[in-house]
């Protein structure tokens, strides 16, 4: 048993120096994620490089789009959560909900969607929206988009599929629900044509939040990613988010707040562990997203040196307690927690 709260740990991959061969690149990424899984980390966040700049050699992107990469990684791992970034501009809500619902079944309940509340102008320019959206329109549209996706994820009750071959009843029509959404930006009838998620619904990870997005996050998010800041303001920010979550009628523990950190190569492991413990114990967050290039050496340093130190301090669980991403985070609906 852990004493007190568990520090949650994620790894965020940003495009490193890409291997010239995509085949090798996938096996390298697979090894990376398998190592993160062997270390018992909660999840790997897969960035999507669509909005990145035109692909100069110094910043060559991974050769994969994030949701397709997630599907492939799901087949070579069994416990670690896999979260892909996907933009609300690039995807219609029905298509996005469907992709992630399918990924969640492929991964047996280990998938999540990372939506960002920050608009990437380059993306709009490639998706027939050369004018982009005003910040306020983008916010309202994102909120509506996310609400549709989460609604579609709940279109089928967990016990809707009957598989009653002799009775000729494949599913119970009473347990399939239309969405009938008609909003400012979208109109979506539903239901999704993918079965209910093994973890109730995929995990929603929100990032790129400004002050004005916090209430949206409090209503919808399962996990919130925040940038690192001064420790005393981190505590105030964390308390503020929990207050907002409570105000939405949700249990404050239903939303996990992770702080992004990017350890530099020359940071001493003990110093990194010390810093994480201080921020965690000061209740500035529920855990951390370690940002690193997709290189085994970077991960080796973290799982080989920092992680044992955190475990020695009793901050991080020794191994997975469940099989779904929700269960790793202790979120409702995760099944075998």
């Amino acid at each position: 048993m852990d004493n007190g709260a568990t520090m949650h740990l994620a790894v965020s991959l940003f495009p490193g120096i890409a291997d010239p061969s995509p085949g090798l690149e996938f096996s390298r990424l697979a090894s990376f994620v398998q190592k993160a899984e062997a270390a018992g980390l909660d999840m790997v966040l897969l960035a999507d490089s669509a909005p990145a700049s035109g692909g100069g050699a110094a910043n060559s992107p991974m050769p994969f789009e994030a949701t397709t990469l997630l599907a492939a990684l799901a087949t070579v791992t069994s416990r670690i959560g896999l979260v892909a970034a996907a933009s609300t501009i690039a995807h219609q809500p029905y298509n996005l909900a469907r992709r992630f619902a399918s990924l969640d079944i492929i991964s047996h309940g280990r998938s999540g969607w990372n939506a960002t509340m920050t608009q990437a102008p380059r993306e709009a320019a490639n998706f027939s929206r050369p004018e982009g959206f005003s910040p306020d329109d983008f916010r309202r549209r994102s909120e509506e988009h996310i609400g549709i996706v989460q609604g579609l994820w709940q279109g089928w009750d967990a016990d809707a599929l009957l598989f009653d071959q002799s009775g000729g009843r494949f599913h119970d029509p009473e347990k399939m629900h239309l969405l009938e959404h008609k909003g400012e930006f979208f109109s979506v009838r539903g239901p999704l044509n993918v079965a209910r998620s093994p973890q109730d619904r995929p995990v929603l990870v929100l990032s790129g939040l400004s002050e004005a997005d916090l209430d949206i996050a409090a209503r919808a998010a399962d996990v919130i990613l925040l940038d690192d800041g001064p420790r005393d303001s981190a505590k105030a920010r964390y308390d503020d988010i929990r207050r907002r979550v409570t105000a939405c009628g949700r249990d404050p523990d239903a939303v996990k707040v992770l702080t992004n950190i990017a350890p530099t190569a020359d940071s001493k492991p003990a110093a990194v562990a010390e810093r994480l413990e201080k921020e965690f114990r000061a209740s500035g967050c529920d855990g951390f997203t370690i940002q690193m290039p997709a290189q085994l050496s970077a991960l080796d340093d973290f799982v080989g040196l920092v992680l044992p130190e955190l475990r020695r301090r009793g901050l991080v669980r020794e191994s997975y307690r469940g099989t779904t991403l929700r269960s790793h985070f202790g979120l409702a609906g995760g099944g075998d927690q």
């Binding site: 397709t68 997630l70 599907a71 492939a72 799901a74 399918s102 492929i106 599913h171 119970d172 044509n193």
Partner: peptide, 20 residues
Amino acid sequence: SQTSRSIGFEPISLLSALAV
């Protein structure tokens, strides 16, 4: 509800899994 065609995998995620 009398057919099996109302639910299934979304094909791009399915084929990405099959690819590897």
